[in-house]
Design a binder for these strands. Structure first.
Length: 279
DNA sequence: CCTGCTACCTGATGGC
DNA sequence: TGCCATCAGGTAGCAG
């Protein structure tokens, strides 16, 4: 599911729902979701705490507590789900006809905030501070932050000999870009995905920077309208397909030149691009 | 140090 | 219909 825009949309939508609320009970229904941490650590760290802020860093979602913090990562399929109260949670979580898959649930003084990932890739962890989470500490420049400038991107590009596609997926350099938006950004910037990062010219870097920012911003607008609906586990980011120009369009005509979009494998993931106008 | 590959899980889809 | 292979928006960890 989520790259930077999706997680940002979740953070913004969640903030007014949970900010200032107290977590009075934490249920870990599938303890794989806290691995390798012990579920008791998450329970101990969260119960009784107030949620002071909701934040996004790269593709991580952070719940800042009065003391300590919780990091959530959705990986491919994770999502947040909302229940009216613990009664509804008890009735529907992983059971019944209108069952909803739930891994971890935080019962608040109003409502229940839950994390769900049927595939069990996603994680919910507790820390004293965000930087104690190795994944968060390792994040590079956030793609939607003020520090992400054309000059910064050019500097980062020059220090890597990897193919551009793999460079863009490396969260340690630029944080927040995933498989979909890397393809989209390269299509917009008209750059061939297999070109080595350090071989890009300065104007390529400028075009790429502009493409990354506009693709992510465009996607964020889509993700916010309509906004995420945590009450509906089937809810999905609507209308994203209509902004996609390369991803998932193998064989379809390029929207610029008409040549069929190609799909290749890079680092065991699919890359979609136009072999005529991306050079 | 850098890079490339696999494992981690479950579910949907398409070919036979 | 059923079975199997393949694919999926991410990343930690490990070998070379």
């Amino acid at each position: 599911m989520p790259e930077l825009p999706e997680v940002e949309a979740v953070a913004r939508t969640l903030r007014p729902l949970v900010e200032g609320r107290r977590i009075y009970r934490c249920h870990v229904l599938h303890s794989i979701a806290t691995k390798p941490q012990d579920p008791t650590r998450l329970r101990g760290a969260s119960e009784g705490q107030r949620i002071c802020d909701v934040e996004r860093r790269g593709k991580y979602l952070l719940l800042r507590l009065g003391r300590g913090c919780i990091t959530l990562h959705f990986k491919l399929d994770g999502q947040m789900v909302w229940f009216e109260d613990e009664k509804e949670l008890a009735r529907r979580a992983n059971r019944g006809d209108d069952r909803v898959h739930v891994d971890v649930a935080f019962a608040l003084d109003k409502g229940v905030l839950a994390f769900a990932d049927r595939r069990h890739f996603g994680r919910v962890w507790a820390w004293e501070k965000p930087e104690d989470c190795p994944g968060v500490a390792a994040l590079g420049t956030d793609a939607l932050s003020a520090e992400f400038t054309p000059a910064k991107l050019a500097e980062l590009l020059s220090s890597s000999r990897r193919p551009l596609k793999e460079f863009l997926l490396d969260q340690w350099r630029v944080a927040g870009i995933g498989n979909i938006y890397s393809c989209e950004a390269m299509w917009r910037a008209r750059i061939e995905p297999r070109r080595r990062a350090n071989r890009l010219r300065r104007r390529d870097a400028r075009r790429l920077h502009k493409a990354i920012v506009s693709v992510l911003q465009r996607a964020l607008e889509c993700c916010l309208d309509p906004a995420p609906d945590f009450r509906d586990p089937e809810w999905w980011y609507q209308g994203l397909e209509k902004i996609l120009r390369a991803y998932g369009r193998e064989g379809d005509p390029c929207r610029r030149c008409g040549k069929p979009i190609r799909r290749i494998s890079q680092g065991s993931r699919s890359t979609f691009f136009c072999a005529r106008c991306q050079t």
